[in-house]
Simulated scan of single mutants.
Amino acid sequence: MERTIRFYKNARHEWYADIPEWGGAIEDLQMVEGADELLNWIAASENECKLLMADQFIQNAEILALVYAREENLGGGGDYLLEQFRGEFKNHKIWLCGVTEFVFKHLPERIYFKELQ
């Protein structure tokens, strides 16, 4: 499955995913625990970016690898590792909440992503 998702910063410089069909609280769409740092790298000085994200291989994409699926009492979702970013070694840990499962209909072992202009 492939999906284009827009991410944006609010007035307090907090990152959020723009998922119109999400029926839950807006707070659930906030990007935290490493995902916000990744979006800062991608967007540089911009306040938004669009990513093509997929649970199957995409040519020239970055890769997030699932390390641990969290239980609901620990926030759900999964802990992912970004080993490299734009050819640089990062070993960056990211938590993606249960909204990830809502988007992909499962918690992917790998998430491939690349920025769309």
Rank of each mutant, 00 (worst) to 15 (best):
T4F: 02
R6E: 15
Y8W: 10
K9E: 07
N10D: 15
W15G: 09
W15K: 08
W15R: 04
Y16V: 04
Y16I: 08
A17T: 04
A17S: 14
A17R: 06
A17N: 04
I19C: 03
P20D: 13
W22Q: 03
G24F: 06
G24N: 07
G24Q: 02
I26F: 08
E27W: 00
E27R: 05
L29K: 06
Q30P: 07
V32F: 04
A35E: 09
D36E: 14
E37G: 06
W41F: 13
I42R: 01
I42D: 01
A44S: 10
S45P: 00
S45Y: 06
S45C: 03
S45H: 13
E46L: 00
N47Y: 07
K50V: 03
K50W: 03
L51Y: 05
M53E: 03
D55N: 14
Q56E: 14
I58S: 04
A61G: 06
L64N: 07
Y68Q: 14
Y68H: 12
A69V: 11
R70M: 11
R70A: 13
L74F: 11
G75E: 05
G76F: 05
G77K: 06
G77T: 03
Y80W: 04
L82E: 03
Q84L: 01
F85R: 05
F85K: 09
F85Y: 15
R86P: 00
K90Y: 10
L96M: 14
C97R: 09
C97Q: 05
G98R: 13
V99Y: 08
V99W: 11
V103Q: 10
F104W: 08
K105W: 04
K105H: 13
H106G: 04
P108Q: 08
R110Y: 15
Y112F: 15
E115K: 11
